[in-house]
Design a protein around this nucleic acid. Structure first.
Lengths: 154, 154
DNA sequence: GTTGAAAATCCGGGGGA
DNA sequence: TCCCCCGGATTTTCAAC
């Protein structure tokens, strides 16, 4: 599978919006019948274009009220310490995203927690204790204005 | 619906990992039969705990190779300009997330685009042209170390 | 929470442009 | 190759207990 045609792109755009849509519905929207639509989706899954299907929850409703970005600077930048740091980050549930960035600091972490206490606990007992961490600067989210997982294919 | 019991939490944790799991499978994992499991899921959907179901695509495979965080400072902070800015942001496909933050700048934007050219075009023709924008600082993602949509309920 | 059964959907064989 | 028709298998959905 070397490239995506227009129908594939339409399918991916639709599935990014609502993965529970049934085949009949998707088939109708893209102008095919069920079987070819079904086969295209299976092919997209099999070839790794579609990684997974997930439920998106309402953060507030389930009690996650605090979102924070952490700018982390490491002490040294040896390969060993970087690997250790990234491994440790992976195990921390509070960290939902972690990016190695090019800029004034080394890592940008996205943290989502229930409340301020949990965040302080995370900082004090989970992040700062990693011996590779030199400095952490927190930026608190006041309101989330936009949030989408849709990458528009054209 | 006032609170989530352990079984609800288990269901939500499972659906965050894989929303395509069928009811039978989920029922088995949480130790219930199909009908009560089905009813719990419907209840969680109806009450807004579950917002939506989406497909997560492989960014690289579909050709999105550049991720950037933009720190945006506004010129003035009148309610009117803020509303205008947020509205404009909503219409820009390249912006997948936008946060109003408390810190040295006003907004943190997450941008995902195909390549550098698209990013430059976004900066020059879509973001900078908004008259409320005073300053933009870009932080480029070199590698994405962790990325999850799972909020672990306990 | 359980059983059971109707309705909807998925899935794939076989065939045609 | 890509698509369509069609029917059996599977799942979802819901009523009755």
């Amino acid at each position: 599978m070397t490239h995506l045609d227009d129908l594939d792109k339409k399918i991916l755009n639709l599935l990014q919006q609502n993965s529970k849509a049934n085949i009949k519905e998707i088939a109708l929207k893209i102008g095919l019948t069920q079987t070819p639509t079904y086969e295209r989706i299976k092919r997209l899954e099999k070839n790794g274009y579609i990684e997974k299907y997930v439920a998106i929850l309402n953060k507030e409703k389930i009690g996650f009220h605090v979102e924070v970005f952490c700018q982390v600077t490491l002490l040294v930048h040896s390969k060993d310490l970087i690997t250790k740091f990234e491994l440790a980050i992976h195990k921390i549930d509070e960290v939902v995203e972690c990016f190695h960035v090019a800029g004034n600091y080394d890592y940008l972490l996205k943290i989502i927690v229930k409340d301020m206490n949990t965040y302080q606990n995370f900082l004090k007992n989970k992040l700062s204790v990693l011996d590779s961490v030199a400095n952490v600067q927190s930026t608190f989210v006041m309101t989330s204005t936009k949030k989408t997982s849709i990458l528009k294919l054209t």
